[in-house]
Design a protein around this nucleic acid. Structure first.
Lengths: 109, 109
DNA sequence: TCCATGCATCGGAATTATACGATGCACTTT
DNA sequence: AAAGTGCATCGTATAATTCCGATGCATGGA
C-alpha cells in the first residue's frame, strides 16, 4: 500500500458514520450487510449514506455485490490488513523492539 | 481505546503533512525530532505546521518535550498500537480466522 | 538588560467536506 | 405494461478544514 492509498483509507475511516459502518461490516464478514440495513442503522438519509459508502468504496475498504435488487456490502479485510501493515511498517523496519508489544496484543486472537 | 479517540487518531493521520510527520517521528523513535526539523521538511510555514502538530498531539499520537529553547517531538507508539488494536478487534472477536493473515504479515518483524 | 530564537495563537481567506431533497436509472413484481 | 423498490447522482446550503501573515510569549545568549 502506498502513501496515497493509506491517506484515502484513513480519511474514509475518519468519520463517525463511515467508521461505524465499516466496523459493522467487518463484524459481519463474510456474509455482508445490505445497503438498506446500513442506511437504516446510520440514521441518515439514503443519499447521504450513499455518498459515505462511495468514499469507503473508493478507498478500497468496502466492496459491493449486486444481489437481485439489493446490494450486499462487504468489508475488504485485505485492505484493512494493508493499512495496518502500512502503519506498522515504520516501526518494524530497523526497530523491531517497538513492534513487539504491538504483536503481543494482537496475538490475543 | 474508545470510538471517539479512534476517530481523533484517524482524522489526525488522514492528512499528507500529518501522516508524513508522524511516520518520520515513528522512524526516529526514541530520540525524536525537533519541531524546527519537522517544519523545514514539511515545506509549510511554522504557524501552519504548528497547527498540524497540535492536531497530532490532541489525538495522543505525538508528545512534545521541552528541551532548552527547542521542543523535541516524539511519536507515541502505544497510541499507534491502541489504534491498530481498535481496528483489528472487530475481526478478531468471534472470527479469528480473519486475523490470521494479518498476524502472519505482521510477524515479519 | 536587550535582542534573537522557537513556538503558539489569532484573524481572515480559500478550499473542502457534509448533509439534504429531488431526480434519474435499473431491476422486480404485479 | 405499469407500478414500486433500491441506489446513484445532481444541485445547493452550511459547516469544517486548511493555509498564511501578524502578533504574543517564553527562553537563551550577547
Amino acid at each position: 500500500m502506498d502513501n496515497d492509498s493509506a491517506l484515502l483509507a484513513l480519511a474514509a475511516l475518519a468519520h463517525p458514520t463511515r467508521l461505524d459502518a465499516f466496523r459493522r461490516l467487518v463484524q459481519h464478514e463474510p456474509e455482508g450487510l445490505s445497503t438498506g440495513q446500513l442506511v437504516e442503522q446510520s440514521g441518515l438519509t439514503q443519499s447521504t449514506f450513499s455518498t459515505h459508502l462511495a468514499v469507503l468504496a473508493k478507498a478500497g475498504l468496502v466492496q459491493s455485490e449486486k444481489r437481485g435488487r439489493h446490494f450486499i456490502q462487504r468489508a475488504d479485510i485485505d485492505a484493512l490488513r494493508d493499512l495496518m501493515l502500512f502503519l506498522a511498517k515504520d516501526c518494524c523496519q530497523g526497530r523491531a523492539e517497538l513492534c513487539e508489544p504491538l504483536l503481543a496484543e494482537l496475538a490475543c486472537c
